[in-house]
Each structure stands twice: as C-alpha cells, then as structure tokens.
Computed example of a mutant assay.
Amino acid sequence: MEIHFKIIGVLLMALALVHIIFPKYFKWNDELKSLSLINRQMMIVHTFFIALVVFLMGLLCLTSATELIETKLGKTISLGFGVFWGIRLFVQFFGYSSKLWKGKTFETMIHIIFSGLWIYLSAVFWINYLE
C-alpha cells in the first residue's frame, strides 16, 4: 500500500503543477474578458488554491505514507481523500457535458486517463481506510 501512496503523491504534485499552464492553454485572457472582475479573479484565485491543495495532498502522501496507512488519523484522512476523489470521479461523468470530449480523439483520451486516475485515487484511499 505504501508504494501506492508514494505514486499518488508524485501524481498529485504533477497534477497541481499542470495547473500552471491552464490560463494559457484555455486562453483565459480572451475567454474570461466578458466576466466581471470578481468572477475573473475568482477563477484565477480558486484555480491557484485548488492546485495548492492538490499539491499538499500529494506532498502528504509522498512524505507521510506510513502514517497515513498505520494510524487512526491517517485512516481518517484517507477517508476524507477517498470521499473527495470519489466526488471528483462522479463530477467527471455528471458535471461535464460529454459534448466536450465525445468524437474528439485527444479530449476522449484525456477523459479516459483522468477517469482512470480518479478511480485509482478513490480506490487506494478507500481501501486504506477500510483495511
């Protein structure tokens, strides 16, 4: 189980760092122009804090795998992470329109990859909690 926590740590830290390219990749300078200042800034600030939380989750998994696996507090944290990533998996299918990826090769691949990632994260955290 420890190896899975370390893998998850690296994956989550990488996922957090990918957020750096979001503004340019999604053309936020153009796309967000029509939003009010508060909505535009909330998009940017919330993206930063989501990335920060994901990075810190990854850092915790990478540096404290043993504690997450062996302690009551670690099991409780795993439960919280399992719920978090389980909800993220649900949103992958019911929060985003399939029009965003169906019939588009690259987008479908990304959808499949991230669906698999959310399943993996949810499963590892839930299994750790239940053991």
Rank of each mutant, 00 (worst) to 15 (best):
S98G: 06
K102D: 07
T108K: 12
L117F: 14
M57H: 13
L79A: 12
A123W: 11
L130H: 01
S78P: 05
G103T: 05
S36T: 11
F90Y: 15
K6D: 03
F22L: 15
G95I: 10
W101E: 03
V18N: 09
S97M: 04
E131N: 05
I127S: 00
V54Y: 10
G95R: 03
F81E: 03
G9A: 07
N128G: 01
Y120E: 00
F125H: 10
N29E: 15
Q92V: 03
M42D: 11
I3R: 12
F49V: 10
L89F: 11
S115H: 06
L68V: 09
I20W: 12
M13H: 08
N29Q: 14
T76I: 15
E31G: 15
L89V: 01
G103P: 01
S64L: 04
E67L: 09
I20L: 13
A51D: 08
F90S: 00
E131Q: 04
Q41E: 14
L130R: 06
K72F: 06
L100D: 07
Q92E: 07
V53W: 11
Y129S: 02
E31I: 13
I8R: 04
I69R: 04
R88C: 06
I44R: 09
S98I: 09
I113K: 09
K6H: 11
K104N: 07
